[in-house]
Nucleic acid binder design. Structure first.
Lengths: 249, 249
DNA sequence: CCAAAAGTGTTATATGTACACCCATGT
DNA sequence: ACATGGGTGTACATATAACACTTTTGG
């Protein structure tokens, strides 16, 4: 039975006893970022290089145990883990799916509630410790990651997260969470093209986005040819919602 | 990182001890059924009347513990609980959301993975034990349930399930799982109107559904005026999918 | 003056939406 | 013969999709 494990520490405080075996509860955060500098595949996901077994040497989604003792919520656990393991603060968080296959972790029954996280990649302060064997964080292109062999069932998890991002970005204004507060329409379109993995018509895209009335103009860029800059106007968006408005790209 | 330790204390009952407190893992099934006999509010959800504390006397969603000892999957747990508690076999099952608020159950930390279940209501064999104090199952109108005070956080759960049903029924052919294998277009439209809570135009609805080419005619009803009967043609639907077809109502 | 990237309208086609009467049956 | 509920087509409005050139700047 997979839940049986020898104890390693002779004197650990095993103070908590139950009538039945219990599952461990963890959270995982699939952290997406957008890096315009990589014009080939700007959509990134943050992974951790595992320094320990199981799956030592493979890349994995950041995550860890929920602190039941301190009544930690799942969302707080994700925030904590993502900050600890990846040094990242995020804008947008949403529960993705719960993975609970009995054999997904060779150490025992581990239930993972996965969360879908969007960050402005500029804000990162991740631990990119060169060739070190310890845990190390890195932004990797989604297109590359989906062809890698990841730890645990993390290929499946990332696959689901990417699908969710692709579908949700089309009917909810979540993409803005991947951009700095102020952005150009070209940047926004590049973001959508990276996520949806197809080219969009420039004029149709601009007309559609602008006609929604959820962007505010905040001036022009100073360097180079003046570019119109916008910010996402959350207030205007919420006002529109009340009149049955539907965001849709 | 030790996760679980199992030990026997004495010979009588097995005790399981851990280094940290653990959360209990349960599943809940929000079971929807469609009852054309109730023309006023035909969309039903199956609830259990609680015979014990906490929340004794209130109605709740059927559910229960996952059998970790026997490496039960979450889906198997839902199937088992729903069959045990409600006597129902179902057609369609999908994970809805994981509810894990630290105080959602007064007895301790309980994480519930909820599942969204569709059944053909004719097939039921539920325990409707009159005025008994024991657990008792009943089909209740969704419109009524959303105005009742349910046990635990079950109002929230049902609210989310109804929203999911409403959105998903529009872009996936899941509604057919609430109807008998053979049905008329009028029945199908009644179903959609009950779920979406608005009237649909008869001619537009029929044209749209038939033009998808995912229904097969299987003859006419014998009693009364002849009514065209159809079945959902899953094969045809899947073939269409490969050519980029999108179900949408 | 040339390269690079931002910005801008019009037209054809497809899709969605509104709407009212006839027909077959059981009573 | 009448009440009930199933069945059917058209016209108009709106939304989508395809398409190429001009402008502004820095080098």
């Amino acid at each position: 039975m997979p839940i049986t494990h020898k104890s390693k520490q002779g004197n650990s405080n095993r103070r908590y006893t139950y009538d039945w075996p219990m599952a461990a509860l963890t959270v995982d955060g699939i952290i997406f970022g957008f890096d315009p500098a990589d014009s080939k595949s700007p959509l990134k996901v943050l992974l951790i290089h595992r320094g320990e077994e199981p799956f030592k040497g493979l890349w994995a989604i950041p995550g860890g145990h929920v602190d039941i003792e301190n009544s930690e919520t799942l969302e707080d656990a994700v925030k904590r883990e993502v900050l600890e393991e990846a040094g990242v603060k995020f804008e947008y968080l949403e529960q993705l799916y719960t993975f609970a296959d009995p054999h997904r972790d060779p150490r025992g029954r581990v239930v993972s509630v996965s969360y879908f996280v969007l960050v402005v990649k500029d804000n990162y302060g991740i631990n990119e410790k060169g060739g070190d064997d310890a845990d190390m964080a890195a932004w990797m292109s989604v297109s590359k990651v989906t062809r890698m062999n990841l730890a645990f069932d993390h290929n499946k998890i990332i696959g689901m997260a990417v699908k969710r991002l692709q579908s949700k970005v089309r009917y909810a204004p979540i993409g803005f969470n991947l951009l700095p507060p102020t952005f150009s329409l070209v940047q926004l379109q590049d973001l959508y093209e990276a996520i949806l993995q197809r080219k969009l018509d420039k004029r149709n895209f601009r007309r559609r986005i602008l006609s929604m009335g959820i962007l505010s103009e905040v001036g022009k860029s100073k360097k180079g040819r003046p570019v119109n800059l916008y910010r996402f106007d959350k207030k205007a968006y919420e006002r529109s919602l009340e009149f049955g408005f539907n965001f849709e790209v």
